[in-house]
Every structure is written in structure tokens, then in C-alpha cells.
Design a binder for these strands. Structure first.
Lengths: 180, 180
DNA sequence: TGGTAAGTTCAGAAAGATATGAAACATGGG
DNA sequence: CCCATGTTTCATATCTTTCTGAACTTACCA
């Protein structure tokens, strides 16, 4: 059940689902969640929880939690068919938007708080060390710089939908590698 | 013993070590490893495995493995004191360079292979779908675009020391799952 | 009402990641 | 050659994350 290995003789759609699952763990989303996401992206028609769970061979409970998470990221949407009590799900169609939504949210809740603490401790260390210990002071400053760079780039990049979207193709073009 | 919570009344240096440990898990390095790294960054003089393990209250075995990993990332260096059989370790002094070394290496061994499989499956899916199914085709193309953008941004970003200051660490977090 | 077909939650099982400590391995002197 | 000292490896323990399945809730309809 659940996650399987990717082999050549399975249908392309399944290979995609599994590889997207692996992709998920690269950017910090668990495999089941990413697999559901992949499945919905490849299905234009809405799917019920039950169908999804059966298709991916995961429990209904797990599917329910994953769908909740995906709803939380805003990358899927619930649709109701009239005269049917079931909840059906479709993927938002703008893939880049989805991607940004996830990255942004993860940054906000995982990256930002940690960086804040590190910065705070760096400040105390600098104070404490006063002017002494050149080498250490230099490293502290380098680290502060690194952190603030990370923060600024992150904020700039993720701050605005428009900026992010227009920035990406720009980088693409100037890299000299024609896309597609 | 080992990892502790960060509280105001502990010395700034320890607060830094612990917070850098947390930072580590944001970009996919386990806490012990990141803590050792922090300790070495804040110590200009070389430290032996034994001293490190005692200082951080972790086992010598664990310390040994973490040091090995850090050597693998190229962010610490082994130095020998004449007339002493012990191995001493010092951190490379350029923090940004270290950071880049880690991110670059993680990209190479975790991000690139996964992206490659996803791309391959996207290609087969496109072929398979032929011209039919507009909506799905459109999504496939969007995803290909997203992937190639990520790749290009990553390469460009990591290719040049100067540009290379962020984005990927935000995206790349492995939770340690996809080793080597 | 009671029955049923959903959806959600959550305690605990299973899987996975990390850490320990002791045994195996190395090496440099006497 | 053997001891002392230091390092690495690895089976096992611990801690964390993910998943399951059953209990619980809700909404509809006869």
C-alpha cells in the first residue's frame, strides 16, 4: 500500500504521482499529501475523498488529513455537486501560484521564527564579546550578513505574487537557456 | 542530554549553538551536526572530538559521525598538532562559502535527481496524452515550466558566488529523508 | 425519530531518523 | 609485539513522524 517505488513498467500517471511524492519531501511536504496533489493536478474532474484514498491506497483518515492540509495551503478547492453530499476536490489550476503559496507559508512558519532567534543570539554574542577577539567578531558579522541576505531575498522574492512571477521568467531568459 | 531548549538565562554562546541547531533542521542538517558546526564557528582554536562531545553532551560515536558529515560538506577542516595523535577540527572561516557549499551539495544529491525523474515522467505523460485533453496538457506545460525555472534559478544562483545568497535553502529542506 | 452515508479526529501502530555505547579497528611509542 | 590512546562502526535504544482504523460527528432522508 501507500508509497511505491517508481518503475518503468507502471503507467506514466502513476510514475508522476510517485515522483511528485518524492518531490514533496524535497520541499517539506509529506509524500501522501504530495501524491494527492499530483493526482488532483492530473485530473480535471473533481474527486471524492473516497476515490482518492482508494486510488492511492491510503486510509480515509490519512486522506482526510492530507486534503485538509492541501486546503490549508490553498492549492486545492472543494466543490459541491448538486444533489450529492460528498465533498469533491479539484486542484487550483495555476501551478506556480500553488507553489508560491506553499513556499511562502513554510517560510513564515518555519524559517522566520528560527532566524529571529539566531539573530537575537548573534546580537547578544556580539555585545558580550565587545571589541575583543577579532576572528570571532568577524565571523559573527559574516553570519549576520548572511542571515539578513537570506531574509531580504526571501521577502523580496516571496513578497509579491507579481514580482515573483515576473522575476522568474526574467532570470530564465537572462540565463541564456531558452526555456521549454 | 544533547539538544536543549533555548532559555534566556543560558550563556549567549549556548543559545547560539542551540538556535543554530534549529536552523540546521530548517535546511536539512540534523541538530547535532549543526550544533557542532556552531561550536566550531565560535571557537577560533581547534577542538578535538572528545572536547566537542563533552561540551555538547553527545556521545563520541555521534560526534564522530557528525564531524565526518561536516568534513563531507567541506565546512570544517582537520588539523594536526605536532606530537599529538588526536584530530583537531576547525571551521572554515568564510561563513557564506560554507553555507553555499552545503546548499550546493544538497541540491546536487537531493534536488537534482528527483527533478530529473519528475521531468522524465512529465515528458511521457505529455507524449501519452498526445494533443487531447487541453486542460491537462496546459498543466503539464505549466509544471514543466515551473521545474525548469526552479532548475535555472538554482543553477544560476549557485553558479555564481555573488548571486548565490539565498532562495534555495528556503525551498530545499529535506527533513533528512533523502540521504546521499 | 432511526438509519445511513458521508467527513473528521485521534490513540496507538509502524516506519523512519538519530543517538548511544560498546566492540572493532588503527596507530604510535616503548 | 603489546599497550595506550584515539577513532569508527554498528546493533540497539530512543525519539519523531506518518499512517491506520475505529470511534465520533454531521447531515440528509424515509
Amino acid at each position: 500500500m501507500g508509497v511505491m517505488t517508481i518503475s518503468d513498467d507502471m503507467p506514466a500517471i502513476d510514475r508522476f504521482i510517485e515522483s511528485w511524492g518524492a518531490m514533496g519531501s524535497v520541499w517539506g511536504i509529506n509524500a501522501s499529501t504530495a501524491r494527492i496533489h499530483a493526482l488532483l493536478m492530473m485530473n480535471t474532474d473533481a474527486m471524492s475523498l473516497d476515490t482518492i484514498a482508494k486510488r492511492l491506497r491510503i486510509s480515509r483518515g490519512n486522506a482526510s488529513m492530507c486534503l485538509k492540509e492541501l486546503r490549508g495551503w490553498g492549492v486545492i478547492r472543494l466543490v459541491k455537486e448538486p444533489g450529492d453530499r460528498r465533498d469533491y476536490y479539484v486542484s487550483e489550476s495555476d501551478v506556480q501560484k500553488m507553489f508560491l503559496a506553499i513556499v511562502r507559508e513554510r517560510k513564515r512558519r518555519e524559517f522566520d521564527p528560527v532566524v529571529e532567534v539566531v539573530e537575537e543570539t548573534l546580537r547578544s554574542l556580539k555585545e558580550e564579546a565587545g571589541g575583543r577577539e577579532d576572528e570571532v567578531q568577524a565571523r559573527l558579522e559574516q553570519m549576520e550578513e548572511l542571515l539578513s541576505t537570506l531574509k531580504v531575498v526571501g521577502d523580496r522574492f516571496l513578497g509579491s505574487e507579481r514580482l515573483a512571477k515576473s522575476l522568474l521568467p526574467l532570470l530564465l531568459r537572462s540565463s541564456g537557456r531558452a526555456k521549454q
